[in-house]
Design a protein around this nucleic acid. Sequence first.
RNA 1: GGGACGGUAGUUCAACUGGUUAGAGCACUGGCCUGUCACGCCAGAAGUUGCGGGUUCGAGUCCCGUCCGUCCCGCCA
Length: 592
Amino acid sequence: MGALRRSHAAASITVASVGEEVVLAGWVQRRRDHGGVIFVDLRDRGGLVQIVFKPDTSPECHERASGLRAEYVILVRGRVQRRSDETVNPKLPTGEVEVLVDEVRVLNRATPPPFAIEDDPDVDESVRMRHRVHDLRRAPLQKALRLRHRLFQAVRASLSDQGFLEIETPMLTRSTPEGARDFLVPSRLQPGSFYALPQSPQIMKQLLMVAGFDRYFQIARCFRDEDQRADRQLEFTQVDLEMAFVGVEEVLACLEELTVRACAESAGIEFPRPFPRISYAEAMARFGSDRPDTRIQLELVDLTDAFERSDFRAFRGVVDSGGIVKCLPIHDAEALSRGQIDRLEAMVKKELGGKGLAWIRVDGNGDWQSPIAKFLSEAERGAIAKRCEARPGSLLFFQADDATRANAILSRLRVDLGRRLGRVDGRDHELLFVVDFPLFEAAEGGELTYVHQPFVAPHEEDLALLDSDPARVRGTHYDVVMDGVELGSGSLRNHRADVQRRIFDVMGYGRKQTEERFGFLLNALESGAPPHGGFAFGLDRWVMVLAGAESLREVIAFPKTQRGQDLLLEAPSEAEDLQLEELSLRVRRPAQ
RNA sequence: GGGACGGUAGUUCAACUGGUUAGAGCACUGGCCUGUCACGCCAGAAGUUGCGGGUUCGAGUCCCGUCCGUCCCGCCA
């Protein structure tokens, strides 16, 4: 580099700096060589500015500039000049000026990039992942990671200001059989034993409460060895927090304070307070989802009772076996063609495991066009028409299935169609709390199991139900939902060992099993545990929503593919025999 | 574990019912060009058609298997 040092960022060159001498450093975005004058777009971490090489200004620079190629790393010294009116580029923030170069140094050459470094490159994602360094040079990823940084800083500032202490917990920890599949780390010193990477710092933070830290937080990496999705990575980052001597209201107030400040400081988005609250039951009833996007102005209608004595077997059978019949009415739906309806039905069957997609279209004369109308009684037609407020132009989609699937399918249709048809209110973003989740749900074997995690405290007034009717016990669980994405969840925890034991009982854990797995936690609770509760945000998802991205891979510097590979490092990889030997491991390779 | 879509040059795509030497844009290389900004013009180089097997006189194309990417179900909170 010699003695020359960068004086300005590309984006900071404006008409105000005309006449100044500047030193810029960055990458060659593009070279436009006219034989005489040569233009180069210089890109650095903040932006782009045009630099100019003229044969009569500096023949040596001009000569060197003709050898520049995309992604070469260069350092230039030159003078900022205003562009003539005809040559101003309105597409560039720095388009009114340019830098006339009289010294250039090539700090490094570069192989041709595998794809163009531009905002919207037309390449397969696997190519981007394999060449992640080039990918990360693109403005959208630069922006996303800057947003991520600002969110981290704002979260830390808010929680620190609210009296929280940042405390780290171990990454090498113990496997617990609940929840997701663990990542295991073999122990060299204890042959045959394994650490587990944390799925979350849940138990550790409860222990910190028992230890008297009162308010704890951590930006913690978590690991879950499950199949991935656009919004799920094997490893991800949580803002984990816990507070003692609080009830639900204090936690929610803290979360409001945190999210409002963090969204404002990182993304400039303001939210009104208090946040709307919706119960789990209401969310499922109206939107078919426990993470509703209520900006979409379509709601579900329950028709189960109207088909209790129906002659329409497809619906009646479902109701008889405990299922539900629900409808998604869409008014003024003339834009949806028959072909589109058929495609929706195919998606429901193939992708979502639905039985089908019954529908009724009310035409301009008020007549019902529908494959199922002829099976419906007068009373049923009346009930449908009334509750769905059917009118000419209405299109009604039905699901008759067990509650979980019917809601899942209609919720998906609601979101897809609501967006496609523009049935949204004017808000760019929405934050809300979902509260009053049930504590237990029926598992496959008919037994009860926890809905979220086994440490959620029941509602105080439902404590008695733990013995009489546990399925009806409400938990103190709450979710924060932003734009239909679950940002995170939390609860009050069981600080009384007897309540925690009772909950393990209900889930059918034996006494011995309980002591073996959770003895240390129960002992801690018995040692003087204060009432406590907390929350954990999925930080990657939070950034994703703020960035308007479709996938976590757009907000994580080095993400993994759906099969859990890092295409850049080619991880995971096989271990050396020596490594395996030290760990007392033998690998059984699948048969040829 | 299951379903859907995709895999041909560095990259994005094309190649009819199986039929000459697998083409094109961008990128790349060389040349020309003093006001472009997706610069332009001329020329050139560039391929294990993901991999393996099969059918066939002949396979990018058909069949079987397998690997990889994305989305979804299951799983996961």
